[in-house]
Amino acid sequence: MSQAFLGIATCVLIFSSLLCLDRIGRGPTAPDRAIAIDTLGTIMIGFCCIMALWPTPTDSPSASPFMDYYMTVAIAWAVISFIGSLALAKYLEGRCYDA
């Protein structure tokens, strides 16, 4: 995969995560922020894909040009993001006694 394409992809994903950060900072209610954080976690998995496809230096001992261990990071990130959003949902639902 060409490095220029990966660079453009990185820029696009950085733009998306800036939009998410805007919603996290501005969101009028707590669930807005929770949704934006969840989305940001999903975009991070996209970043992991780009990192995995980034060409390694030619003198590296690895046979394959791709770094598959970044996908392990992506799997772990997906699991933790899921658990985090469920915990946030439980916490927000508990706040209905106050209203």
Binding site: A78, A89, E93
Partner: peptide, 21 residues
Amino acid sequence: FLLATAPVGAHAICRSAYVSG
């Protein structure tokens, strides 16, 4: 894993948003 879990998490957050008013 992502296809199975991301919608579940978002659904939980939306439901809790509605219940919390």
